[in-house]
Design a protein around this nucleic acid. Sequence first.
DNA 1: CGAAGTCGTGTAATCGATTCCACGAGGAGG
DNA 2: CCTCCTCGTGGAATCGATTACACGACTTCG
Lengths: 339, 339
Amino acid sequence: MASIKDVAAEAGVSVATVSRVLNDHPSVSADARARVLAAVGTLGYRPNAVARSLRTDQTHTLGLVISDVMNPYFTELARSVEEEARALGYSVIIGNADERPDLQDHHVRNLLDRRIDGLLVSPTDGGSPLMLDAVRAGTPMVFVDRWIPGVDVPVVRADGQGAVRDLVAHLHGLGHRRLAIIAGPAATTTGQERVAAFRAALHAYGLDLPEEYIGQGDFQAESGRRVTEGFLDLAAPPEVVFAADNLMALGALDAVRARGMRVPDDIALAAFDDIPWFVHTDPPITAIAQPTGELGRAAVRALVDRIEGRPPQSVTLPARLVVRRSCGENPNPVQRSTS
Amino acid sequence: MASIKDVAAEAGVSVATVSRVLNDHPSVSADARARVLAAVGTLGYRPNAVARSLRTDQTHTLGLVISDVMNPYFTELARSVEEEARALGYSVIIGNADERPDLQDHHVRNLLDRRIDGLLVSPTDGGSPLMLDAVRAGTPMVFVDRWIPGVDVPVVRADGQGAVRDLVAHLHGLGHRRLAIIAGPAATTTGQERVAAFRAALHAYGLDLPEEYIGQGDFQAESGRRVTEGFLDLAAPPEVVFAADNLMALGALDAVRARGMRVPDDIALAAFDDIPWFVHTDPPITAIAQPTGELGRAAVRALVDRIEGRPPQSVTLPARLVVRRSCGENPNPVQRSTS
DNA sequence: CGAAGTCGTGTAATCGATTCCACGAGGAGG
DNA sequence: CCTCCTCGTGGAATCGATTACACGACTTCG
């Protein structure tokens, strides 16, 4: 592979001049520039990003550590992050933690070793020492979706409180009174917040959220299935199951089907996180939609601001309720098609 | 950030010794080793992967360029690729081409500039000059899922012929005679092959695949919708629509619904690529399942073989039919749950 | 007892870029 | 005509690792 030296030789100039042409530094004669460009062309030269990074101490690369790639929500997040980063001149390296703190640490370490310019994280847990060290060491970082309390890092996330209130209003209006939730891991902020928001909304309607109606899930389909089975085994099973993410909703649907029961006739189902497939499930599932693309873009902007020395901003965007048929009689038509 | 020099100073040895300890080179005294390790600990030193790569000319990184991250098939592929790569001591950088040749080139160029050790590609088109140049220049490369004919690069893919035959047998057995296909882009091998396999299977049953029953899609949901609408507008609409990937099947489902028609009563639907959601659509969709995880792992093994000087092998694994209810009366129960 | 390893270690070259500094040529101004 | 800039250029240091080579101290063996 041709190096800058080869180009310099071919063009009959020094490597300094080649470098100047490549970084379009002003003081290069038109003649030299032309000769260098020609040499670059004939040799098919491409600068070695590794060497450049070593010298400049910048990789123009962002790390993104997400909790689970197989979750369409995070896939979409990753996509929008990459798009915005590309627009701003950065590349993205994605690390998939699969909801496992050890894997999360593996990727964070790997990204740090590669000297990425900044890190976007949706933490799987309450904060590994590794990540806290990185923050303390001054690594530019931004939390997206989930965050770690007590750490001074900008957070870009959706606020579901309003939408959860709308959901409970909808459910209450349909006559449901026994509402249960499949929660996410308590170690994640989204795991806790969604339960808190749900409980608060229920209280507003004079309803309770008893312990046995809080199932402990882990944001994966299998846990949704398991928890739902537990709910169905109760002496007084809930009339509604609200899954704190889309994969657990999928598991819940499985569990209900496996018993030969029907949604929404025998039990209603709603989910946090809306995805295109929810339009086509049987029945279409009522869900709380996050502005996923906007979150990803805002997170990148915040991180790049931080990297480039501008003050980064935390951002909170509202989520909204999308009513479909999985909770019962629905006065409105479907409001959202695939896209 | 501490460098190897700092560690050397702290431990009272030379950088050479530190390096030897880090790469566990045999000739280092126990005493020196202990002092270096202690220094590494107190400084929290981590070797700079950028510098190391520059010197050794290896990044221990694989590039993966896929056609569309939002397609669950590719997401799963990416996940298994990363897993296997990690097991073999490599990291993976994913580039999402979004079915756009220009974006594909952007990522290939970016990965090449970063001096990745090898490239895994599922080409969006018939082969950009950039990629062909890379092959000619000796970049270790392996094609996965799709490939470019006439290029001497190992291919890891699934063979759908048998499964398509099974599908046609199933459809024929259910009494369907007018079968249509939503094809992928002709520039991709999977786009062509699936049509060819379908046509061959139809012939075996004495059936034809007329031009108007071949819709040109692009592997995205929207094209599935458009093509399906075209089919429904025909004087003699098909009784079955076979979508060459899961996203186009989603679009087809949309189109059918939008007309107020029902699957499978008014029209049957089948898809190439099976995904967890197909169990839960209304109705559950009959699909051809690829051994996605196995493909990803085999592709990584082939690429790493190539990188490390062993002869790489092309691999072809069989896909299989999973019958559900979207094509009509089904004697067998669902054979596959989510996972 | 001297020659010939062996072992542990350090010095310095190297990878491919960027960039500070020095230098020579040419132009402007006194 | 001399001085002082400006401009274009090249030499060389530098980033943080790895590794070939040299060297001194010990062993080992004839």
